[in-house]
Design a protein around this nucleic acid. Sequence first.
DNA 1: CAAGCATATCGTACATCGACGATATACAGT
DNA 2: ACTGTATATCGTCGATGTACGATATGCTTG
Lengths: 111, 111
Amino acid sequence: MTRTKASNSKCAATTEKLALPDVEWADDLAKLTWALAHPARVRIVRLLLSRKSCVCGEIVEEMPLAQSTVSQHLKILKETGLVQGEIDGPRVCYCIHKAALAKLKKLVASL
Amino acid sequence: MTRTKASNSKCAATTEKLALPDVEWADDLAKLTWALAHPARVRIVRLLLSRKSCVCGEIVEEMPLAQSTVSQHLKILKETGLVQGEIDGPRVCYCIHKAALAKLKKLVASL
DNA sequence: CAAGCATATCGTACATCGACGATATACAGT
DNA sequence: ACTGTATATCGTCGATGTACGATATGCTTG
């Protein structure tokens, strides 16, 4: 993480483009589904949705994986936009990027 | 493909189990999303849904990939249950396994 | 059964994933 | 500034994904 202050990242709304050309559409969906294409990442997303926890450390505790591994999965989830991290003092609070998740749901639903 | 006659494979309805334990649930979703986690496979699924074509050869023609590569993607889609192949004379007619797709949609929607 | 076509599988090469421990970086408090 | 804590990144390794051409398999037809 480049550790840009959360307050600076305006977390721009997703590009909402409808009716994509097929190839681009496929790339989009593939990227989003790929983010969920690992049980650990699915569990992280579920965890964040359940609001039980948000801080990275808590996520690590809930998973049978090393901290660095969890961090890598979080990085992937961030890169695909499904998750955002906000700096909260010395820790990082993760949460679901609802617009991205909505996009994923929409794309899958419209299959 | 083991080339079992399509007429012999009863194509059993999907295991519908609700309220899975979280870990198993995550594995299920991860497996299904993983099937779509490649643009080529998304395009194949879209192609089959559009009903434009069904025969393997036609799929190959629509994709910028070698026949063997397409066949591998089809294998993955079959293994995850999203797609079924039926022998139609010397060729194979692929189609979407609607129950599996419905399961994927349900799992994603219930995120 | 021989030949030809459609599809699957094999073998290979390269890239990427997924895991870990070790280390670096950023922040809070003293 | 120094220390400790939390998180990210690096380096590595084995496993797997993705692509291809070549070959095998299975069906249909002559």
